[in-house]
Write a protein that binds this DNA or RNA. Structure first.
Lengths: 161, 161
DNA sequence: ATGAAAAGTGAGTAATCACTTACAAGTATA
DNA sequence: TATACTTGTAAGTGATTACTCACTTTTCAT
């Protein structure tokens, strides 16, 4: 994960992975069949942890609170998961096939929340939340921004406090 | 640009580039010294075009209009430049060194605009605009979203219409 | 028309790539 | 303790990689 996140999938050799892990190169292929299999294992591992956070949002019944929680997600990224999310965002731009299903349910729950609140265009409102989450995640993962006041500012603009 | 944008820098071979361009592989190295040099040439070419759009924002003196124009930028991406921006956003996650200088001036002009408008925290407000631009660009380049009403919705939340 | 520079080619190069295979060491159960 | 299975290694494999070099063709001012 460390190497894929910093050098990219194609930029990382299986030899380098073996060295970093302190094992022989052959062992990688015994365990994961091929390089692609290793990537899939990493993604599955990460998404399993990530889907916990998504559920936490979806399970909130009060629509305003649900949207609030959704926006706060990128602000609460566990620094230990930083490399995973960097890898996920990097993959976004290269591999359309790796857009996992948890995201679909997440979006649907946002649309539902805005419908409950009687917004004119729930779909567009949900897209805007996704836009903000994507943008905040980008800034947090790549730069070191003053996240504290930013969350408040966003919630203000969206009348969510 | 086409190949780098779709397959990534490491995922694209110089042989493939030569074939796509209809020239010999050797010619690439005559013109650009090495593969990295070709990437730099592509980035310079694209940034030259992009800086025109940034100037258009910076040169607007009226602060509200300047911010409005800034937010509208990702909505007005020339489809011909789509591949370039995909490449730029993909590189973002792999190569920190390719964060070009025009962006710095652009951000400064946003902070200045919010200062003029008397906002409590112009830095955070500017960051939020960057967040939105990043997020919108991501959505527009990767998915095909209903951009029309999204822009209006954003301007509404930020009292910019 | 001439000649030198620029543009272009194609067959190389060593290095690196993902991956395989033959074999050894460890581990658990009967 | 014997056996079967898993875990692990080291030395390969052919293919592909970025890049070079000797050479030919084109361009263009004189």
């Amino acid at each position: 994960m460390k190497l894929f996140a910093s050098l990219g999938f194609d930029g990382t050799s299986t030899k380098a992975i073996a060295k970093e892990a302190g094992v022989s190169e052959g062992l990688i292929f015994k365990h994961f069949k091929n390089k692609e299999g290793l990537l899939e294992a990493i993604i599955n591992y990460g998404m399993e942890k990530a889907s916990v956070y998504f559920s936490e949002v979806i399970l909130i019944s009060e629509p305003k609170k649900r949207i609030k929680k959704a926006i706060s997600l990128p602000f609460t990224i566990d620094p230990n998961d930083n490399q995973f999310w960097k890898l996920m965002y990097a993959l976004k731009w290269q591999r359309a096939e790796y857009q996992p299903s948890p995201f679909v349910l997440f979006r649907a729950s946002l649309v539902d929340a805005f419908e409950q609140l009687g917004y004119d265009n729930p779909e567009v409102e949900a897209t805007l939340i996704e836009v903000i989450i994507d943008g905040v995640a980008t800034q947090i993962l790549l730069k070191n921004i003053d996240a504290g006041t930013l969350l408040e500012t966003i919630l203000n603009k969206h009348s969510l406090n």
